[in-house]
Every structure is written in structure tokens, then in C-alpha cells.
Design a protein around this nucleic acid. Structure first.
Lengths: 323, 323
DNA sequence: CGGAAATTTGTTATCGCTATCATATTCCAA
DNA sequence: TTGGAATATGATAGCGATAACAAATTTCCG
């Protein structure tokens, strides 16, 4: 920067201004400086800039796994929206369960992000303390709680459980099962599903728990295990479309008629859900909206605006061919 | 850091050493310092550290879109492998086509990454110049060229085209079609496919081009368009499993027998490929290996090791039920 | 027990930029 | 013409760490 300044016949601070607040520099000067920058191929150092200004222009995002479509789409829209405002995304994957979250958070806070995007609302006590101390805008997503650390963009997993139960009851099913990954949010949906059914006098239902992350194979095996203790006709609520897809395949191979003898509801409305045979009934979450609104929340807070702390983006039970 | 040093009765540089090179600090001293760090909740500032040491401990990754499973899995394994060595990943999505790549690169280079992961081998002249000037380890992936900017982990799209053609010829198909996304790499596969067939005296084949990114719907429509100019029996090579999935669905709805009257080959071996009905023949790329080996290449170069510049990870034609 | 080698700790000078305050220049109405 | 606001630029002092070298302390062996 010093060299650029010398070549342009100005002081370094003027170069800095041309780059960051061009509106306060005389047009002629700015042009001259820009020409030198172009000619020399000068690349500013954002580390130094960030150190001096305490603004790093990036946001850290923590998700359990980016290879999960559900999260990758949210990250995509987060990245896109932030890019428009000149921010970038530092990615961290915490794993299932969030075994690395604490270390990850420490590593991330060392970089002084301007904002943090966190998947889920349950973090270790130590993590929470660090986050609060860091005094940085934080948005938690994928869940709802009245007491977020800072901001929140999510939906009620409890309501999902209720809504799916209600939907299946409406379709006339009287026996129910759950195939669920071992995951905190899936667990909330499962419990709500059960409790809703029990308020309707239905206590008779079996649960199969499978390890996270869920997979097609686990879905197939899950149905097998479920049918050892439950008998048809039956409606199954799966904690993900991936599991549901496996259940559907297993049903076909056992020549169980879907939705006649076996109702299936997934979760997520992944790409393939509308294209299975029959197409999968499921719960749709607007993943893109999560990323976008989370970005807006962070940007708003960064700019010191008054942003709403909690956004419930809801969900939709999608009735297709498996119920 | 100064405060921690004072409380521990040492100089700041000793604190720095406890954090970065604990092996050269006396155990007693280190323990004392660590206790103070713990007690005060001191969070080191990696911006300042990076500025002084010229090591930022992160790698930038540019992919067209993270919501594409093909890339998200590579990023996942990249992130995982780098994490083990204390590095993090800054994510950038360049879009289809790579419209944002140049700006993205500028933004990224400003942060002085210790390494760069780039999808693809075709970059603008300006981008290449910047990358070379930056003098930072770079690994390009998903393609093969004898002249990478720095390092390369990929496979030959040309060979994929040849191999698929050979496979289909072996299955007895005599008429062929291509449904391909408008994407540079897909184009290479398509051309190789055609040229391989033409060496076998087959010139009669139709191509349908669809815009990227590909989707189930584009696959369905693609088959419709293809059948306007080609007639069955036919074998179709799709540029992605997603397209192939759509083709398969369209074939079913038109009551075209697969693989009897219509052979289908996808590309990517995505999650669902083995679970369509019939299961999809496709080309498998070890996406996880790409991320892992790219990480190893970058880490090796960062540590000053002599790493092999070009790694061909190959591919596999997977014969399932649609050919 | 002496002195060279090995180990441990400290001093100083940056790294490349921006915040803050100060100064110079321009503009315009009186 | 003049003085005060508005505009444009500059000087200085950090931001919070580490590199490089220097000094102090300990270790070790004949």
C-alpha cells in the first residue's frame, strides 16, 4: 500500500480510502490511485485491515455436515446473500453429534468473525459462555426456542410432530410407527408425534432408532425391524426423506402396498422426494429461506439495525403418494 | 496476550510460544500460562498472528455451487482432512458458469489463504495471473490437464466419454443419444463419447443440451426432446445422475422399457442412483478422495514437502439396471 | 568443578493496515 | 476581499501478534 501511495503521489491512508470509502476521496485522486493499483496488481491485505478496523468481513458457519443436502442448501443461500454485501463464509463442520463444536468454536472465534451462523440451539455450556463473551452477532437456525443466544431463524420441530400425526390420522391410519435417527431435533419431532397421538387415545406404537446420519440402507433395515414388532396396516413417520426412501424400497421388495397397507412420511422434501414411486409425502422446510434470513439477520445486526430476534419460518406437510 | 503474560509472570512471546510451539517452553512455565489462559478466557487473535507470521491456517475453496452433492462431498472431506491439521476452510461459490470467480478470487486473495482449492481447470486469464502472482499452493480438481497452475487432483472426462461409449457398445446398443448440461466438463465427456462412437462407424446420434445446473425436470424434458429426433431402441448418456433420473421417470411414464428399449447412463453415482427402479447405471467418481487428496496435496506443499503435482483418481463405470 | 552446549526466556522491530485527529484546500455568501 | 463551513488529504499511533536475534539459565561431561 505504501508503494502504491508513493507511485500515486498520495499518502497510504488515501489509498486505503479509495479502497474502502471512495466517496470521500476526490474523483481525480481516486482515479489516479486506482490506475496504480491496476498497474501494479496490488492486492490489499484484509488481515491487516481487519486487525486495524476490527471488521473482518466474514461470517463463520457451523453445520453438522455439509454433505447433507439440508444444510448445504442453507449454506448456499447464506453464502450468496452475504456475498452481495461483501462478506464471505468460513465453513466449519461439527459432526454428528456435534463432537467438534467446542474446538471448532474456539478456532473460529480466534479469527474474529463479524457474525456466526450456528446450526441448532443446544450447545455446550462452555460454548455458550464463549459465544456470549465474544459479543458478536449470532444466529442459530433449524430450531425454535424462546431463549436464543442472540438471534434465531427456525421452525418448531414439535409442531412438525403434531402436524404429521394429524395428517396421518386424517388419512385414516390407526397404527403408527417411527423410524428416527438418533438426533436431538428428530427426537423432538418423534416425541411430539407420539404425544399428539396419545392425546387421541393411541398409545400403541413402535419406535426404531437408527444412528445418525441416516441413510437409505438404514431406512430399509429400519422397516424390517419395525415390522418385527408392529403389524400392517401401519403409518411410519421417518426422521428424514433418506430413511423414508429406504423404507419405501423395502416395502416394495416385501410387496407391501403403499400407501394402502403402509403409509410413509419423510422429512425434508429433498430433491428426490417428489420423484420416488409413489412420490413421497414429507415435510418441507424452506432451506433457502433459512440461509437468506439468517444472512439478513446477521447483516442487520452488524450494521447496528434493530432486527427481530426470532423468526419462525414454519414448514409444510406435503401430501404426495405415500400417505 | 500482554495481560496473560503479566498475570503469568512471563513475557508475551512466551505466551505465544505456549500456544504455538509448546515443546520449546519449560513444562512448568507452560502450565502456569495455560492456567491463566483458562482462567481469563483469553482468545488469541489469529488475524494478528497471521499478519505477523504470514500463516493464516486456512484454505480457500471455490466450487460452482455447494448445494450440488458432487461438490459438497468433496468439500466435506477437504474440510475434515484439513481440520486434522489445524486448518479451516473459507468457502466461495462461483456459480454456473463461474461468473463470480474473478471477484471471488480477488476477495479471497486479500485474506492471504495458505492454500487454494479450485474446481475446474479453466479460469480467466486475469484469474490465472493473480493466482500465479499470489505464490500460494493451489490445487485444481475435477479435471485433468498436463499443465495445472500448481497441483491437480482429478480424472479424465475424455476417458469417461470413451468408457461409457465402450460400455454401451458392449451392451449391444446401436443408436445413441446424449442429454448434457451446458457445462465445460460435460461437454468434454460428450465430445469424447461421440468421437469414440464415430471411430466405430456410428455417426448417427442426437444431442440435447440443457442449461446448467441440471435437474430432474430437465431430464424428463430432455428425453422428450431427444425422442423427437431419435427413435428407439436407443442408449442415452446423461451428463449427470440427476438428468438420468428424470430420463428414467419420463421413460416410465411413456412406458418405454428400460433397459430393453432405452439404455440410460448417468454420471456421478449420487446417493439415489443405486435406488432408482431399475437402479441407474452410472459413472462413479470418488468425491471423498478428491477432497482428501487435495487437502493432502495442499498440506504437503505448505509444509514444503515434495508432492506429486498431478493425481489421476480415475473413475468407474457402474453397470446397474438401466443398461 | 569449569566451561561449552543445550535449553529457556526476553527484547526489539516489524507485519500492513485504519482510527483519530490535524491540517490544507476549496467554496461561497456577505 | 474575507472568514467560516465543507471538502480533501496527511501525520501519528496503534491493532495483537510473531520473527529474529540476544541473553540468561540449566545441563552435562571430562
Amino acid at each position: 500500500m505504501k508503494d502504491v501511495a508513493k507511485l500515486a503521489g498520495v499518502s497510504p491512508i488515501t489509498v486505503s480510502r479509495v479502497l474502502n470509502r471512495p466517496e470521500i476521496v476526490a474523483t481525480g485522486t481516486a482515479e489516479r490511485v486506482r490506475e496504480v493499483i491496476e498497474r501494479t496488481g496490488y492486492v490489499p491485505n484484509l488481515l491487516a485491515g481487519g486487525l486495524a478496523s476490527r471488521k473482518t468481513k466474514f461470517v463463520a458457519a457451523i453445520v453438522p455436515a455439509i454433505s447433507n443436502q439440508v444444510f448445504s442448501e442453507a449454506i448456499q443461500s447464506l453464502t450468496d446473500r452475504l456475498w452481495e454485501s461483501g462478506y464471505q463464509v468460513l465453513l466449519g463442520t461439527s459432526g454428528y453429534p456435534a463432537s467438534r463444536e467446542e474446538d471448532l468454536l474456539a478456532a473460529i472465534l480466534s479469527r474474529r468473525p463479524d457474525g456466526i451462523f450456528l446450526t441448532g440451539i443446544s450447545h455446550s455450556a462452555e460454548s455458550c459462555r464463549r459465544l456470549v463473551t465474544a459479543n458478536v452477532p449470532i444466529v442459530e437456525v433449524w430450531d425454535l426456542t424462546p431463549t436464543p443466544i442472540d438471534m434465531l431463524v427456525g421452525f418448531s420441530h414439535e409442531n412438525v410432530g403434531h402436524a404429521v400425526a394429524e395428517h396421518l390420522l386424517g388419512r385414516g391410519y390407526v397404527r403408527f410407527g417411527v423410524i428416527s435417527a438418533d438426533d436431538a431435533r428428530a427426537e423432538v419431532r418423534r416425541k411430539a408425534f407420539l404425544s399428539h397421538l396419545s392425546t387421541r387415545g393411541i398409545a400403541d406404537l413402535s419406535t426404531v432408532l437408527v444412528p445418525a446420519p441416516s441413510s437409505f440402507r438404514l431406512g430399509r433395515e429400519g422397516l424390517g425391524r419395525l415390522l418385527e414388532e408392529a403389524h400392517l396396516p401401519l403409518a411410519v413417520f421417518c426422521s428424514s426423506d433418506t430413511l423414508a426412501h429406504g423404507v419405501l424400497a423395502e416395502a416394495r421388495s416385501r410387496r407391501i402396498s403403499v400407501p394402502g397397507n403402509l403409509g410413509i412420511v419423510g422429512f425434508g422434501d429433498l430433491d428426490f422426494a417428489a420423484h420416488t414411486f409413489p412420490p413421497l409425502s414429507t415435510v418441507r422446510i424452506d432451506r433457502t429461506a433459512i440461509g437468506r434470513r439468517a444472512a439478513d439477520a446477521l447483516l442487520g445486526r452488524i450494521e447496528g439495525k434493530d432486527v427481530e430476534r426470532i423468526a419462525d419460518i414454519g414448514f409444510q406437510v406435503i401430501e404426495r403418494g405415500t400417505t
